[in-house]
Design a protein around this nucleic acid. Structure first.
Length: 478
DNA sequence: CGGATCGAC
DNA sequence: CTATGTCGATCCG
């Protein structure tokens, strides 16, 4: 098997600098990659990476063989099916929501610089000689980035200052930035009418991407910082929910509202954040990266703007497409989302259904328009019940749109220790309205509250949380 | 189901 | 002088 390894210079491409991040443009990649390879070669880590790269290359070859066997008919048939789906998905596009994704800039590094002005004009990173969590923008110019071992970073930038991580500090700052309590004060943008979509920003609360975000409680000391987005455990990583539907919020445009949000964060923490405003979470996250650091970008809520934006987007920028997928797609000549749409029929024949459906959604610029709510803590039963009611309303609205009803109501809870529980109840007949769902969900929640008493049920998160199991979903009309 | 794989951070 | 982490989700058998 000829290895298609993409390297002329004899290094593993997977070891090379990943310049997919903000602050990484226009540096001397060849020099940087050479240093990385020299520092890595021969290590066990490198050998393992080499093995993994070979496996990926073999998968690509296998895929190319499969591709060669596809007949014109198969392709045409796939094409027709894809076209139908594109049409349906396009129809279901929801442009009514505004999602804001807020992401702290180089979070850990920014905190350390703030607290030690001497670091300000030096290249610095947070972490250890073994692993860095993040670096400041000055260091990024040398190719120093999150997830890079400190000893390699030192070779790239001998003057690099490496500061050990202070998780407690990051968590404290993170808490300051959470919407519910941290950024107190009247917040005119928090709610819109009936559907309070506000959420806090995860970033603030949770993690960090390109810029990182702090961690939460169970901190597993981890820590890379760059990158926005929502974090797995605390959903909020960089996301905030939207101020509302439409672009006017209490007479102020979203851009202004988000500018104020960022301004308040900066006033309170002396740290900057970037934000993306878009009709769904996938796009908002990508947008938050666009004018980083300390900037924001709004993608208008119309189909043309979305499609135009997505066409020019490298697939690697999309949440969920990592090194491996990028390489697999690259084998087919797909580097940008525009290629994704062009080759969708082929993709539908070469990838699993879930995979190509995911690609299809990306190629249309679709994403979630609903945001999980995260709280610092919620231990008052009345609040829990009223939140539960809200979730039921949202769910009923979504179900109505899809013309679905269901027989199983599942309540998902996450307590302050981050343990997740689900409780479900299956009914004799399917339900669809908010009242019907709430009647069941309320009982489930009350049972949980009672089971734990006299202690209080202390919840961390309740969201995404009340939903109906898919298998029991039925058409609204028989 | 458990282990492998992938991706986020 | 060395030295490359941890988690959750999903896939796959």
């Amino acid at each position: 098997m000829e290895s298609t390894a993409a390297n002329g210079g004899g290094f593993l491409s997977r070891m090379a600098l990943n310049d997919n991040k903000a602050g990484m443009e226009g540096l001397d990649r060849d020099r940087i990659n050479k240093i990385i390879m020299e520092a890595s070669k021969g290590s066990r880590f490198y050998e393992n990476e080499a093995k993994k790269e070979l496996q990926v290359n073999q998968r690509i070859e296998k895929m190319m063989l499969q591709k060669a066997q596809i007949t014109e008919q198969q392709l045409q048939k796939a094409h027709a099916q894809v076209e139908r789906m594109v049409y349906e998905m396009d129809m279901s596009r929801d442009l009514s929501r505004l999602i804001v994704h807020v992401d702290m800039d180089a979070f850990y590094a920014a905190v350390e610089m703030r607290d030690c002005p001497e670091l300000k004009d030096k290249p610095m990173a947070v972490g250890s000689m073994s692993m860095l969590s993040t670096s400041n923008y000055h260091a990024r110019k040398f190719g120093v980035r999150a997830a890079m071992p400190g000893f390699i970073a030192k070779k790239l930038c001998p003057n690099l200052v490496i500061v050990p991580t202070n998780f407690d500090k990051y968590r404290a700052v993170s808490n300051e930035t959470t919407w519910n309590r941290g950024l107190a004060g009247p917040n005119p943008y928090a709610h819109t009418g009936g559907a309070p979509d506000t959420t806090e920003t995860g970033d603030l609360q949770s993690k960090l991407p390109e810029e990182s975000e702090p961690y939460m409680e169970n901190l597993s000391p981890v820590l890379f910082e760059d990158s926005p987005s929502t974090s797995p455990s605390l959903p909020a990583s960089g996301e905030t929910a939207a101020p509302g539907r439409g672009s006017e919020v209490f007479g102020v445009c979203v851009e202004e509202a988000v500018r104020e949000m960022r301004f308040r964060i900066e006033q309170k923490t002396m740290l900057t954040a970037s934000a993306g405003i878009a009709p769904n979470t996938m796009l908002a996250k990508v947008c938050s990266d666009k004018n980083k650091p300390n900037g924001q970008y709004r993608l208008p809520s119309n189909r043309e703007a979305v499609m135009d934006f997505i066409q020019n987007l490298p697939v690697r920028k999309v949440f969920g497409i990592g090194k491996v997928s990028e390489n697999m797609l690259g084998g087919l000549g797909i580097t940008h989302c525009a290629h994704l749409s062009q080759q969708m029929a082929l993709l539908s024949l070469l990838f699993s259904e879930t995979a190509w459906h995911h690609f299809l959604r990306i190629s249309l610029g679709l994403g979630s328009t609903h945001i999980e709510r995260t709280f610092k803590e919620m231990s008052v039963a009345e609040e829990q019940l009223s939140l539960c009611r809200e979730l039921c309303d949202d769910l009923a609205a979504d179900m109505k749109k899809e013309e679905l009803r269901g027989k199983t109501v599942t309540l998902k809870l996450k307590n302050v220790k981050f343990e997740v529980k689900t409780r479900a109840s299956t009914l004799p007949c399917a339900v669809a309205t908010a009242d019907e769902i709430f009647a069941v969900a309320k009982d489930l929640l009350k049972t949980e509250i009672e089971n734990i008493s006299p202690q209080r049920l202390r919840l961390r998160l309740m969201g995404n949380g009340v939903y109906l199991a898919a298998k029991t979903l039925l058409p609204l009309i028989d």
